[in-house]
């Protein structure tokens, strides 16, 4: 599997970003990123559920027999989502109006089950919740990246504010499903190129270092002879 070492919070946010690195949770990523507001709202709702479900699953991890762990995880995840749904509805109408449509979608997000299986089922409570927070915010960040491209090009606005004035003819394509795939491709390409470049620089530097060392040894050998 992938690397789960290091700080669980930063891991989720960047190194193991659920969308750009693990390419998980594609359904919400493509479906609801047609505006930055939607993306941020979905990201935050998912973060909240991830923290809750990771915490709960980590608490019961030693009690659950291996064979029935997935069923247990799903029950816990579905419960967290329902509880969050009720709480948001009770606490604030305006937040519910913004998030209401997204909350039930979270159950189907595979990131949650993946984090339960890969992390929370094996690790203590606090790191598990940190992992949930990191992964959730990483997901929110990735969704916002997609949402930015799609909203700016597809509607000519950012967070609802008009950017280019009334004469701008928006590319409606970017608001429709194909726009989701195109924007995702753009971001995945950017991230992959950036990661490859970083890896290449690292290997080149290592090679240079070795060459330098070899040269230095040569000089020493020459001086001695």
């Amino acid at each position: 599997m992938h690397d789960t070492s290091g700080n669980p919070f930063l891991n989720g946010l960047w190194k193991q970003n659920p969308v750009f690195v693990q390419v998980l949770g594609m359904c919400p990523t493509l479906a609801i990123t047609n505006s930055v507001k939607n993306a941020v709202a979905m990201g935050l709702a998912t973060t909240f559920v991830l923290v809750c479900s990771n915490g709960l699953i980590s608490m019961v991890r030693k009690l659950v027999p291996k064979q029935v762990r997935i069923a247990t995880y799903i029950a816990i995840i579905a419960t967290s989502v329902t509880v969050v749904d009720y709480l948001v509805k009770a606490i604030s109408i305006s937040v519910y109006k913004a998030l209401g449509a997204y909350i039930p979608l979270i159950v189907a997000n595979c990131i949650i089950l993946e984090r339960a299986e890969a992390f929370a089922g094996k690790k203590p409570v606090v790191p598990s919740m940190l992992d949930g927070l990191g992964m959730g915010l990483g997901f929110a960040f990735a969704l916002s990246c997609l949402g930015t491209i799609r909203e700016v090009l597809g509607a000519g606005t950012f967070f609802g504010f008009s950017l280019f004035g009334p004469n701008f003819e928006p590319w409606v394509l970017f608001l429709l499903p194909p726009g989701g795939f195109i924007s995702l491709a753009i971001w995945l390409l950017t991230f992959t190129l950036w990661r490859e470049r970083k890896a290449r620089i690292a290997t080149e530097q290592a090679a240079l270092e070795q060459a330098r060392k070899a040269a230095a040894l040569n000089v020493i050998a020459e001086v001695r002879s």
Binding site: P65, V68, I76, A78, T79, V83, Y86
Partner: peptide
């Protein structure tokens, strides 16, 4: 296994019903 699943379902059910009643 059945005991564990039963316990988890019961706890989840109670949690949902409790939240529903409270809210």
């Amino acid at each position: 296994m059945i005991r564990m699943l039963g316990a988890v379902s019961l706890a989840c059910g109670l949690l949902i019903v409790g939240t529903n009643l409270l809210t």
